[in-house]
């Protein structure tokens, strides 16, 4: 912060007076100050002429060829030709690289030159197979902000509102203290496990409680590997859709039966006769 470039106060005040923004006025005033400083040092302003740069390079190469001047082999040509950076021909550039590597006559190589003592690489070669090539068709897309984020925000608000209203009017149940010695008349798992509990009615507990759920889970995970049909269009996958709908319906039915049509002792009841034996 301390050695910041001085600004030309006069220029700054003038520009502010003209109604320019603070930022622009400051930048221009800074530039003016730098310009003045350079003139004071006797430097020329503006881009350096090309001849001057080439001349500096020639000088440098002569020095390099005669073995003097360059202290270490790796040392980049010290100072002086900073202004020449952008104006080298490919040959000149190659010569410069070669000079700094200490092997004037050979063509520049990408890796470590065999004759050199250097062990670091200037460039890494990446085989084409090492590059992830992504090819995709141009798609009809819209900006995430504002389009998607707005939709998401509305969905989020709607759900929050719904939950708040529900929570305001319906209290979560709390029964009497847990008592391992007193089996309640109606004894049910949470609704998402009612399908399993209903199965328990028909099968041995090992089948209903362990084998079938295991088969369902593994079966679900296997779906993408079993369904080899490449089309995602409903027209082309009637069998898959039918099978899944059947599975969902079957499961839904078990949950509904278990939740609403089972009463004391897990016997069949009609809720309008015996009341709803179901707690969320």
């Amino acid at each position: 912060m301390s050695d910041e470039v001085q600004i030309d106060q006069e220029v700054y005040d003038r520009l502010i007076g003209e109604g320019k923004s603070e930022r622009i006025a400051r930048a221009k005033a800074k530039a003016a100050a730098v310009r003045q400083a350079k003139i004071a040092e006797g430097q020329s302003l503006g881009p350096k002429p090309a001849e001057e740069a080439s001349k500096k390079l020639e000088e440098f190469r002569e020095k390099a060829a005669s073995g003097g001047g360059v202290a270490t082999k790796t040392a980049a040509p010290a100072g002086g030709d900073a202004g020449a950076g952008g104006r080298l021909t490919p040959e000149q550039r190659a010569a410069r690289v070669a000079a700094s590597l200490g092997q004037e006559q050979q063509p520049p190589s990408m890796g470590v030159p065999a004759s050199s003592e250097h062990t670091h690489r200037l460039l890494a070669l990446v085989p084409p197979s090492g590059i992830q090539q992504v090819q995709a068709k141009q798609q009809d897309k819209v900006y995430t902000w504002p389009h998607l984020l707005l939709v998401e925000f509305v969905a989020l608000l709607a759900v929050t509102a719904l939950l708040l209203v529900a929570s305001f009017f319906l209290d979560a149940p709390l029964g009497s203290l847990a008592n391992p010695n007193e089996v309640p008349a109606i004894n049910k798992a949470p609704w998402y496990f009612m399908g399993l509990q209903e199965l328990l009615r028909y099968f041995h507990p090992m089948v209903a409680g362990v084998t079938l759920p295991g088969v369902f889970m593994v079966g679900l995970m296997a779906v993408p590997y079993v369904d080899k049909n490449p089309s995602a269009h409903p027209e082309n996958r009637k069998l898959a859709n039918m099978a899944f709908t059947f599975f969902l319906t079957f499961w839904g039915l078990l949950v509904i039966i278990g939740s609403f049509l089972r009463g004391a002792g897990y016997e069949w009841v009609w809720p309008w006769v015996e009341g709803l034996g179901f707690t969320l």
Binding site: L177, N179, F193, Q197, A208
Partner: peptide, 16 residues
């Protein structure tokens, strides 16, 4: 830790 909780969970863990 009410009756509802204890027995709903018992159904599940018995299966395990």
């Amino acid at each position: 830790w009410d009756q509802l909780a204890l027995w709903a969970v018992t159904v599940g863990t018995n299966m395990m």
